[in-house]
Nucleic acid binder design. Sequence first.
DNA 1: TAGATTGTTAATCGATTAACAATC
DNA 2: TAGATTGTTAATCGATTAACAATC
Lengths: 217, 217
Amino acid sequence: MDKKQNVSRAVIRRIPRYYRYVSMLRANGVPRISSRALAESMGLTASQIRQDFNCFGGFGQQGYGYNVEKLCEGLADILGIHRQRKAILVGVGNIGKALLKNFDFKASGFDLICAFDADKTVVGMDFGPANIRDVAELYDYVDQHQPEVAVLTVPHGIAPALARDLVGHGIRGLWNFTGEDLHLEGLGIPVENVHFSDSLMILGYAVDAGDPSATDE
Amino acid sequence: MDKKQNVSRAVIRRIPRYYRYVSMLRANGVPRISSRALAESMGLTASQIRQDFNCFGGFGQQGYGYNVEKLCEGLADILGIHRQRKAILVGVGNIGKALLKNFDFKASGFDLICAFDADKTVVGMDFGPANIRDVAELYDYVDQHQPEVAVLTVPHGIAPALARDLVGHGIRGLWNFTGEDLHLEGLGIPVENVHFSDSLMILGYAVDAGDPSATDE
DNA sequence: TAGATTGTTAATCGATTAACAATC
DNA sequence: TAGATTGTTAATCGATTAACAATC
């Protein structure tokens, strides 16, 4: 199920999308799928799909294709969905609230154990799965519970310092919604920077150009 | 300012990030920057930056570098920031609300003129720039005001049909937060699918692997 | 002018696609 | 077995990097 060590960035970034499509097939009770049929439905080539899956060793079977159940579990394992790593969220503003209320952390492999904010009026409340605590307790909490990942939904400006401190307290990955690029790869800390504006600007360019090829995945 | 026709997808997707960095330099009053210095601060190579900028014709000057003001305006023009294209938002749930309240559409080149929801309790309210109308009025409104882009923040399931209908009424681009991939490129309609879960899963993978190289941009 | 830095061509690298033998 | 489809190698394509002449 795990074979090669050096899986390229391009491949890894496609895995969640595979997982999404294959999960849907599974939910629909489809027992098996060929690389050709999956490629068709995803807008990729069959070759690429076989290459990608083979980075992680043989999911498939010649003459048959891929068993959907097995493939789905394989992809889930690659992504560590079942590991349910502990995560915290810092900054319960609109975006923070929206994530707490709507976003299914469990489905992505995380257990959101607590959220933090400086605003006393939200401290003590519950949104979705997590209780809100005072940000003053943040580092004590991190020391004690050792979450692996922090979701940053704080206002612009305070992100870089916060990120550094969290990493100092053992945080190993950051999901960053602040709009400021964080670069902690030098420390070996992965960061996913979510930039709404970049996405919308690319859409604007594509609309102006009348060219959809800048968009999709 | 505009030279080549076939600007590659890879280049286009970097432009918003350039725009972000160069805007910051401008805000800080920096008058000029070399490809070398910009590369340093963005974690790219100088070569790549010069190649990228040259897709759109000479922003720079030999021996001097790039004039920040001019470069910033050039990038804004490529992205059509000043065009302020009309946009609507459909689905005023948590994510919709968060976007309306927090997201600066103008800074990305859009004027969010109206939002729609089926829930009568939010109809008539204002969040941020836009008034909320009943979704029953949606298509009449689109016919009349001809927005170019629709932001889809509706619940899972109804997105594909809604997207098709909006395109039927002249919508030329979709910013899709529903978690369902929409593929309308066959119709020449660009779509930016925003997938929070994909982003978080990639982060999870990178954390497990102890390898930040899957993340960043 | 001399130094700096671009614009641009050529070389390298990586990712995608094609092809086909292996095998279920 | 025959047909289908994978796993995998080789060919192609595109994107990034290096190099350097042009020129401010």
